[in-house]
Design a protein around this nucleic acid. Sequence first.
DNA 1: CCCCATATTCAAAAATTCTTAAGAATTCCT
DNA 2: AGGAATTCTTAAGAATTTTTGAATATGGGG
Lengths: 234, 234
Amino acid sequence: MFNILVCDDDREIVEAIEIYLAQEGYHVLKAYDGIEALEQMRKNEIHLLIIDVMMPRLDGIRATLKIREENSLPIIILSAKSEDADKILGLNIGADDYVAKPFNPLELVARVKSQLRRYTKLGSLAEESAKIYRNGGLELDDDRKEVTVDGQPVKLTPIEYNILLLLMRNQGKVFSIHQIYESIWNEEAYGAENTVAVHIRHIREKIEINPKEPRYLKVVWGIGYKMEKAGDGN
Amino acid sequence: MFNILVCDDDREIVEAIEIYLAQEGYHVLKAYDGIEALEQMRKNEIHLLIIDVMMPRLDGIRATLKIREENSLPIIILSAKSEDADKILGLNIGADDYVAKPFNPLELVARVKSQLRRYTKLGSLAEESAKIYRNGGLELDDDRKEVTVDGQPVKLTPIEYNILLLLMRNQGKVFSIHQIYESIWNEEAYGAENTVAVHIRHIREKIEINPKEPRYLKVVWGIGYKMEKAGDGN
DNA sequence: CCCCATATTCAAAAATTCTTAAGAATTCCT
DNA sequence: AGGAATTCTTAAGAATTTTTGAATATGGGG
């Protein structure tokens, strides 16, 4: 059974989360600030951490950084400001997922499940950390956050990087603009069609020799975009 | 694929909902009052619940509360009185969405999709089973949005693709032009007979060797169209 | 075997979707 | 604060798809 540490200075939120997680058969441990979280981590074997950003004494971001120094476990960060998503996921910090407050408890539970599934399936994180995706001359190293085209390093912005990562992780699979937006921004796509399209354009300018005839990042008319697998001549 | 429990004491409504959900590839389970719903929940793994408010024995509200005590899954409540919306969605009860009766089946389907989408994050998690439909030499890969005939890739437009997907998902089943239109366009079919017919023609041109003697996409006179199961020489 | 409802074909007009560019707004860094 | 980098918005033009309506063909009951 999995032990999940929930850390938030609002006790009601912690209890609410506990109820939902307990329903799913998880064992819940509680902490009410970053210091307590660190203590709990030392004392118990924790399999997943849910932690709020804003807390007294030691906030969630700092706590996460501290914990990452010596532990590898899935960390889900709660935050009131959805704009922080990039920073948090952009992995300066090392969180695995991000949920905006106020959140739907079921969604949180879904993400917990998803993270646990991911970590257990791939064994320990160590195995997973060789995260290098290749496709023809295009290479993305998710440990170093580096992208190269035919050996030449390419500099992508965080959003561009995350979009490319999504597509490289699922080569051949088609993603709608809607899916891309929701996956990267973690919020409902509204009038964001062009936004994504522009980022696609920028990525193409950087990874394609001729953006007008993309070798890798192709459009699927009326549906979305995909990463074309090299040697799929069609 | 997802299991959806539909609960209403009006059997006609349950059946109607079943038809629409089945078209989208969902597996539907049925219950006709709250007690039955609870039983079904115990016996099966349900991913989403659609439940009416007014029912004999145990009404939808009480059933929802009971179910929430031990299950966490998206719940959509049906109700005749739209004034109840607040009460139902206000966390008191714990429903995730609310649809007023009489409802548009297509809207219900849209909401089902939306709720399920919320709890399945894409990208990071191991992808759900690759959805590939086969029939003789005809193959449709719904992840890649690719269709091949005897190994040869075929380029379909979005509408053509969606019509073919509908037929491939329900091989052998006959769909009226009306049903096809409503299923693909998500709106009332009006004078759209020709439109669908034209798309059928285009699909045939692309997937049939001889469109005049279709092997796969056959007409059923006076009724509609179907995907003929290979080896069903009739 | 004739007739009528139904199905098919065709091409042009209308609508949609994608690409591209440029500038505004925002965030980041020093 | 000021400049640089990044992200978002807007809009026009290009590419592609969808719709439309009329002409043509076809099936099958009487």
